[in-house]
Amino acid sequence: MNPDQIRTLGAKLVIVTAICGGLYVMIADPMRSTAHDAEIKLSSFLSENNGVATTLANLPEILESHDQTLRRAAEYEERSRPARDQSVMFAQVMDIAEQAHVVVESVTPNGESASDKNNRKAEALRPGDTSVKYAISGRGSYGATASFLQQLQNNMGCCIVKNFSITPDYTKTESDGLQFAITIELIGFDASPLAISEISGEGSP
């Protein structure tokens, strides 16, 4: 090849190389960088949202816990039935009296616990809770009366003995016969789901 041919070919080579290099620098390389950035962004996003997957993996456990909560809430509902339903209350009082070997002579609704509305305990109740009082009178031995009291407090939902009195039963022949008068307060708790906004509101303990 003569110098002219070499020069011509060299010029063409340089031009072609420049064009190709320019195209690469102007188009291919930026797109490659963009693709790289997009992949890094995607990787970062997936990494950041890995917690969702963890939560998702723990979801069965959360649902199991939720089921337990609902079961316990149902138990509360069951325990609250004497406070919400007078017939249930009466049946349970009679059952307890029979078990404790006392004779219940009267069960009288004593109205809502209006006298306690201003105290701290009343403030603990939330809308949906139920609080009713009953005056119960009857007869029985000292031990039976104590057992009756114990079962009232322990086996009849949330039952608070507001006051009681026992006096000897002078009308009977048994030496240990007593007359008792008990005022109880039955409270039905509303264990239904509570929105977080309600927690800090009225009725919070």
């Binding site: 609902l70 509360y76 509303d190 264990a191 789901p193 977080i196 927690i199």
Partner: peptide, 8 residues
């Protein structure tokens, strides 16, 4: 639900 129960 848990808060309701806990509150109760």
């Amino acid at each position: 639900a848990r808060q309701g129960l806990r509150h109760a």
